[in-house]
């Protein structure tokens, strides 16, 4: 077994997963407020005011989590010589096309990926930018008057736009998680019945060989320098 993720990254993932679930529940209950289950949820959580307080607290946790993640990442890259393995590069696009050709049987082997393949990068940056958008629009909705104090030039409709963006972006995030992420982490034949890396932080050499061959090559070279 090869160590793939630092323990703190595992904690980070599960805190985020828990808060994300809570935000989804309290958010959906507001979006689908006319539904009986939404009303039940709101009542169960002690009324709309209490539920909104819970939702906003969850939003703060997510925002802080995202901020520390970006800060740690940037500092690691700048000062600790971490490999910027999440950066999108030209190879990700060619890998994507390569794999599409592979799926259709045009090439015999799949793309040889590095530490993170293009699918993982897509999901990662989706979470980062989606998270930033959710945090920004959430704060706008929480402090609508402050927006115009800080930026008097903004038109009033930014509040209404933030509302539709917050609502739609959350739906997108939820749908991506329940389809794409759950498939890749649970139902994909390569990991089924469960990708245990997110619990143990470790990955088998065999899977590395299939999924991250370039990283494996580098790791097994004596000059491999860092791992995180």
């Amino acid at each position: 077994m090869i160590v793939r993720l630092h323990r703190l990254r595992l904690v980070e993932h599960w805190v985020f997963a828990a808060v994300f679930t809570m935000l989804v529940v309290t958010g959906l209950a507001q979006r689908f407020h006319t539904q009986a289950w939404a009303q039940w949820t709101v009542n169960a959580l002690g009324g709309i005011d209490t539920m909104r307080a819970v939702h906003r607290s969850g939003g703060i946790v997510c925002t802080l989590l995202l901020a520390q993640h970006l800060l740690v990442g940037i500092c690691g890259i700048l000062f600790l010589h971490w490999r910027p393995s999440m950066m999108i590069n030209k190879k990700d696009f060619t890998d994507a096309i390569h794999n599409l050709r592979y799926y259709f049987g045009k090439t015999p082997t799949p793309a040889r990926c590095d530490r993170y393949d293009y699918k993982q990068k897509f999901e990662y940056w989706g979470v980062v930018f989606g998270g930033l958008l959710m945090a920004a629009t959430g704060l706008i909705l929480w402090f609508p008057t402050l927006v115009f104090k800080l930026a008097p030039f903004l038109p009033g409709q930014v509040i209404a736009a933030a509302r539709v963006a917050h609502s739609n972006e959350s739906m997108l995030a939820l749908l991506v998680i329940v389809t794409w992420h759950i498939y890749n982490a649970v139902f994909s034949p390569e990991v089924f019945p469960l990708d245990t890396t997110i619990f143990t932080g470790k990955i088998s050499r065999e899977r590395m060989l299939h999924e991250h061959p370039l990283e494996l090559e580098r790791l097994e070279q004596p000059s491999s320098d860092e791992l995180r």
């Binding site: 609508p144 008057t145 402050l146 115009f148 104090k149 038109p155 009033g156 409709q157 930014v158 209404a160």
Partner: peptide, 11 residues
Amino acid sequence: DATANFPDSWI
């Protein structure tokens, strides 16, 4: 603390 543009947030 609402300011001039605030009412327009109701479209």
